[in-house]
Amino acid sequence: MTTSFLDRYIDRQSPVHGLDGRVKLLLTLGYILALALLPPGNWLAYAACAGLLWWAISRAQLPLRTILARSIVALPFALVAVSVVFTRPGLPLFSLPLGFATLTATDAGLILFASILLKSWLSVQAALLLTATTHFFDLLAALRALHLPPILVAILSFAYRYMFVLVEEAQRLLRARDCRSATLPGQRSGGSIAWRAAVVGRMVGTLFLRSYERSERIYVAMLSRGYNGNMHTLTPRRLTPTEQGLLVVGLALLTGITTLSFFM
């Protein structure tokens, strides 16, 4: 199993790939926060943000098309937000007669909805850019350097390492079930919902026991190599002046766009 389709791009050489994880993480978070702060309908500011992001994506030598295609993952969530089109007070634009009721769309509602979608779309692209250009262990190092509690970094690091191992075990369990639950053609496939759930529950239980036992073996392996309850790591390297500069300029730019947008 690979983490995602993004693995294909992660070992490329580009100015973005080469940046320290801290710089990328902070800039991404700053970018998403700035987007969230922009008032609805501020198209110019959105355009500026989109321009910045797409420039970065092209610098990272990622295919923009793939990123754009992939960035619609958040789209199902728009279902929840679409209601704002009809509830936000504003100039009525059009009505949808539904027989028992009439939905009236307003201009403010539409603007808000479009803004939410745009923000979400751009945020996902920013996160994709981060994931596509940064190894997870570099992100972990960044989180550690940014003083996330060591225990959380350790959990994340074990979780990342063993995710692959356990997903494979889960897939083996699923395959075993599917082999045994083949049905004759024309017959309803096996059991009530409760029974099927119980089967999955037992699979979850089995997976838990295997995971637990594995964690004990890992613990022994750690003990054998001198573990005594504290996880030691190398101290993070200092950011280069270029990286520091980029961080400052990037965050200043985002602050600028956000501030300006309130006056427009």
Binding site: L140, S157, R161, Y162, V165, R214, R217, I218, V220, M222
Partner: peptide
């Protein structure tokens, strides 16, 4: 000490 299953021995990312 090297354990049988390298997935137990190699626990880092």
């Amino acid at each position: 000490m090297v354990f049988q299953d390298p997935d137990d021995q190699l626990f880092s990312p």
